[in-house]
Computed example of a mutant assay.
Amino acid sequence: MCLGIPGELVGIVEEHTDLAMVDVSGVRRRINMGLLADDDLKPGDWVLVHVGFALSKISESEAKAVMDMLHGIGQAYTDEIDALKESDIS
């Protein structure tokens, strides 16, 4: 199962302006922000992340609601976080 997981934007990768660093449940990864180029994103904003791409900007309250739901599904969420820990976009 592939899930869209909320991530908090913590910084833009200066040498690759279409990449940003996000924190997803304590795991920091570079993700592609190209789909949201027109959204004027900045550190502290929340995005929905799927397979290394930010799909949409979401509010902090929406991110919390999604995270609460994801924690409730158990193993699928754990598997997704484990896969994220093993991935990297360099």
Rank of each mutant, 00 (worst) to 15 (best):
89 I>S: 01
5 I>A: 01
30 R>A: 09
67 M>A: 02
1 M>L: 04
8 E>W: 06
85 K>C: 05
69 M>A: 10
70 L>E: 03
52 G>P: 05
60 E>K: 14
75 Q>G: 02
83 A>S: 12
6 P>H: 07
86 E>C: 03
75 Q>T: 14
90 S>I: 10
17 T>I: 06
77 Y>K: 03
34 G>R: 08
34 G>P: 04
13 V>R: 03
41 L>Q: 01
58 I>Y: 10
22 V>S: 01
20 A>C: 14
80 E>D: 10
85 K>Y: 02
84 L>A: 04
26 G>W: 12
58 I>G: 01
50 H>L: 04
64 K>Q: 14
3 L>W: 08
26 G>K: 11
23 D>N: 15
40 D>M: 04
65 A>E: 15
49 V>Y: 02
52 G>F: 04
42 K>C: 04
79 D>L: 05
35 L>H: 05
33 M>G: 01
89 I>P: 01
66 V>D: 06
70 L>S: 01
67 M>V: 10
21 M>P: 00
87 S>R: 11
29 R>H: 12
83 A>E: 14
42 K>S: 12
61 S>W: 08
50 H>G: 01
67 M>S: 11
12 I>V: 15
42 K>P: 00
72 G>S: 15
78 T>I: 13
6 P>N: 07
13 V>M: 03
44 G>W: 14
4 G>S: 15
17 T>S: 11
31 I>E: 00
37 A>D: 05
46 W>R: 00
62 E>Q: 15
13 V>I: 15
90 S>K: 09
1 M>C: 05
43 P>G: 10
76 A>N: 07
52 G>R: 03
7 G>F: 09
18 D>M: 06
48 L>S: 07
89 I>D: 07
56 S>W: 07
53 F>H: 12
4 G>H: 08
27 V>C: 03
6 P>S: 06
2 C>Q: 13
67 M>P: 01
87 S>F: 10
87 S>A: 13
85 K>V: 01
45 D>H: 15
71 H>I: 08
77 Y>I: 03
46 W>T: 00
90 S>V: 13
68 D>R: 11
90 S>N: 12
55 L>R: 08
42 K>N: 09
69 M>W: 14
46 W>Y: 15
39 D>I: 07
53 F>A: 06
7 G>R: 10
34 G>S: 08
22 V>P: 02
36 L>P: 02
24 V>N: 04
58 I>A: 03
47 V>F: 09
25 S>D: 13
86 E>H: 11
34 G>F: 05
84 L>Q: 04
2 C>F: 12
64 K>D: 14
15 E>L: 02
70 L>P: 11
62 E>W: 06
75 Q>N: 07
17 T>P: 12
10 V>S: 13
23 D>G: 00
21 M>G: 00
59 S>Q: 05
22 V>H: 08
71 H>D: 06
44 G>S: 11
1 M>A: 09
80 E>Q: 12
61 S>D: 15
59 S>H: 10
43 P>V: 13
34 G>W: 06
30 R>M: 09
90 S>M: 07
42 K>R: 14
1 M>N: 08
22 V>C: 06
2 C>A: 14
31 I>G: 00
73 I>E: 02
83 A>M: 13
10 V>H: 10
29 R>K: 15
57 K>L: 11
22 V>M: 06
4 G>P: 07
59 S>A: 10
90 S>T: 11
19 L>Q: 05
24 V>T: 13
8 E>V: 09
77 Y>R: 02
58 I>P: 04
54 A>S: 09
36 L>H: 02
2 C>V: 14
34 G>I: 03
65 A>R: 14
